[in-house]
Amino acid sequence: MSEPLLTLDGVHTHIGHYHILQGVDFSVPRGGLTMLIGRNGAGKTTTMRTIMGLWRASRGAITLDGRDITGLATPDIAQANVAYVPEDMGIFSDLTVRENMILAARDGEPKDDRLRWIFRLFPALEKFWSLEAGALSGGQKQMLAIARAMIEPRKLLLVDEPTKGLAPAIVGALIEAFGELKKTDTTILLVEQNFHFARALGDDVVVMDDGRIVHRGLMADLAADEELQQNLLGLSLEMHQ
């Protein structure tokens, strides 16, 4: 296993009076795609938001590439070359596809070679380049959200449930896109409920339950062990797509 790019060590997060993360410990190997899975309400989104500094850890440490980022503000974490695609996509509906991409580009204008690569992965974005993002379909909006995160080379990409509510054909397109992204130097931590997607792309897997990590291992091993799936998740992943 490669050395970790991201490490969470005993991370606790409180939201109001609620103690959501309760000593979260796991690492994300450099250059791979790690799946973060678990039952609804397990704390997956809170984990992503805590890494990104949107919610502050009340205890513990988060380390990125050897640097403690636990107390950093979200813009500073983004400046460390981390991108986040939230579950609600986070696009600007009143702006065009082009304007959304310009805002995500570091120098205010996407580089031609990077843009061509994204258009190859998501042809609909080129087709609707001048259309307001709010007029896109749900799948196209998700493509735009991911493309915004990919417009610059990233050290770490955090993605929260990219396939939620999408048609199988769109899920297939996202599998292809993330497969291409895995060939780059980007490390990916991805929350996902679609087993087909997780099995196709995941290198490693971390399973959460009730604000704690209950399993770490290879995605292929979990995918092959239905008894382990039942023990950890209360269901077979094959039935949860």
Rank of each mutant, 00 (worst) to 15 (best):
L6R: 08
L8V: 05
G10N: 15
V11Y: 09
V11D: 13
T13M: 13
T13G: 10
H17V: 09
Y18P: 00
H19I: 04
I20G: 06
I20H: 07
G23P: 02
D25F: 09
S27R: 13
P29Q: 14
R30N: 12
G31E: 11
G31C: 07
G32E: 14
L33D: 07
T34M: 10
L36H: 06
I37Y: 11
R39G: 05
N40Q: 14
N40L: 13
G41M: 12
G41K: 12
A42E: 10
K44V: 05
T45V: 03
T46G: 03
T46F: 04
L54P: 01
A57K: 05
R59M: 05
R59V: 02
G60D: 07
G60S: 04
L64G: 05
D68F: 14
I69R: 14
I69E: 06
T70R: 14
L72A: 10
A73Q: 15
P75L: 11
P75E: 10
I77H: 10
A78C: 09
A83F: 02
V85Y: 00
P86H: 04
M89L: 06
G90V: 00
I91N: 00
D94W: 03
L95Q: 13
V97Y: 04
R98W: 00
N100I: 00
M101E: 01
R106K: 14
R106N: 02
D107P: 03
G108Q: 11
P110I: 01
P110A: 02
R114S: 08
R114L: 02
L115I: 01
I118Y: 03
F119T: 00
P123A: 02
P123W: 06
K127D: 11
K127F: 03
S130A: 09
G134Y: 14
L136E: 06
L136N: 04
S137G: 11
S137I: 06
A149K: 01
A149E: 02
M150K: 01
E152N: 12
L156C: 07
L157S: 03
L158G: 00
T163W: 07
L166W: 11
A169T: 10
I170S: 04
A173W: 01
I175H: 05
I175K: 14
F178K: 08
G179N: 10
K183W: 04
T184C: 10
D185L: 09
T186E: 10
I188E: 05
I188H: 03
L189D: 09
L190C: 11
L190V: 07
F195R: 04
F195V: 10
A198Y: 05
R199G: 01
D204F: 12
D204Y: 15
V206G: 09
V207N: 08
D210T: 13
G211F: 06
I213T: 14
D225P: 09
E226A: 13
E227C: 01
L228K: 15
L228F: 01
Q229D: 07
L233Y: 12
L233N: 13
G234A: 08
L235R: 15
L237I: 03
E238Q: 13
E238P: 01
H240W: 12
